[in-house]
C-alpha cells in the first residue's frame, strides 16, 4: 500500500466534502444530548449528595447502594438494558429517552460522589457558625456549604463533565443519529475511513479546550497543596 492509497482511504478531501453535512447534523444531536444529559445528571447527583448529607441511616444505605450499583454497571450495558427492556413491558421507548434515562442513572452516581466529597470537605465550624446565626439546615446547605463545596471539587466536576460529553458517543449503538453514528454510517456507505477521522477531529477540537482547562485546574490544585 502506497502513501497515496493511505491518503485516499483516510484523508480523502472529496469524501470529506461529501459527508461533512451529514456529520454536522450528527454534531448538532451530540450537542443537544450534552445540553440535556449534563444538567440532568449534575442535578441528580446534587440531589443524591444533599440527601446523603441529611445523615438518615436507612436513606444513606439506599444511596450508597444506588451509587455503587450504577458505578459498577458499564454505561453501555445500562443503555442497552434501558433501550431493550421496556418494549417487553409493553412500552416503546424512543432512543433519546433511553439515552437520557441511562445517562441520568450513570452520571448522577458519579456527580453524586463528587458533590458528596465536596460537602464533606467543609468543616463542622462552617455549619455551626451558619446555624448559630439563625439559618436553617437547608439555608446553610444552599448559601454556605454548597458554594464552598463546589469550588473545592471544581476540577472533578469538570473532569466528569468531559467524560459525560465523550460518553454520548455510545448513543450510536442504539442508532441515535449523533456524531459517532453519522461517522459510522458515512463510513459504511463510502467504504472510506475519512468520516471516522473527521469525527475524531471534531471531538478533539470540541473537547480539547476542556482537557486543557482541566490540566490547568488540576495543576493549580496541586500547587496549592
Amino acid at each position: 500500500m502506497t502513501l497515496s492509497d493511505i491518503l485516499a482511504l483516510f484523508f480523502n478531501p472529496e469524501i470529506a466534502a461529501k459527508t461533512s453535512g451529514f456529520l454536522v447534523d450528527g454534531l448538532w444531536m451530540t450537542l443537544l444530548l450534552c445540553l440535556v444529559v449534563i444538567p440532568v445528571g449534575a442535578l441528580g447527583g446534587l440531589a443524591v449528595a444533599v440527601l446523603a448529607a441529611l445523615n438518615r441511616r436507612w436513606l444513606n444505605v439506599l444511596l450508597v447502594i444506588y451509587v455503587d450499583v450504577f458505578r459498577a454497571l458499564p454505561p453501555l450495558v445500562l443503555l442497552v438494558f434501558v433501550y431493550n427492556v421496556p418494549p417487553f413491558a409493553g412500552y416503546r421507548i424512543s432512543e433519546f429517552e433511553a439515552v437520557v434515562i441511562a445517562f441520568l442513572l450513570n452520571t448522577s452516581s458519579y456527580y453524586g460522589e463528587i458533590f458528596r466529597a465536596g460537602i464533606e470537605s467543609i468543616g463542622r465550624g462552617q455549619w455551626e457558625a451558619a446555624r448559630s446565626t439563625g439559618l436553617g439546615w437547608w439555608q446553610t446547605m444552599g448559601w454556605v456549604v454548597l458554594p464552598q463545596a463546589v469550588r473545592n471539587v471544581l476540577p472533578d466536576l469538570v473532569s466528569n463533565t468531559l467524560e459525560v460529553a465523550k460518553l454520548t458517543s455510545i448513543a450510536s449503538v442504539i442508532a441515535l443519529h449523533e456524531l459517532m453514528f453519522a461517522a459510522r454510517s458515512a463510513q459504511q456507505l463510502t467504504f472510506n475511513y475519512t468520516p471516522l477521522m473527521l469525527a475524531t477531529l471534531i471531538y478533539f477540537v470540541l473537547l480539547w479546550p476542556v482537557v486543557h482547562l482541566l490540566s490547568r485546574l488540576e495543576h493549580r490544585r496541586i500547587a496549592a497543596g
Binding site: M1, I6, K166, I170, Q187, Y193, L196, T200, L207, H212
Partner: peptide, 24 residues
C-alpha cells in the same frame, strides 16, 4: 495525552478495528 483524553474510546475502537487492517 490531550488527544487520547479528548476523543471518546468508542471512536478509537471503531477507528482501529476498521482502519488498522486497511494499513495491513
Amino acid at each position: 495525552v490531550d488527544l487520547m483524553r479528548s476523543v471518546p474510546p468508542l471512536v478509537l475502537i471503531v477507528l482501529f478495528y476498521y482502519g488498522l487492517p486497511a494499513l495491513g
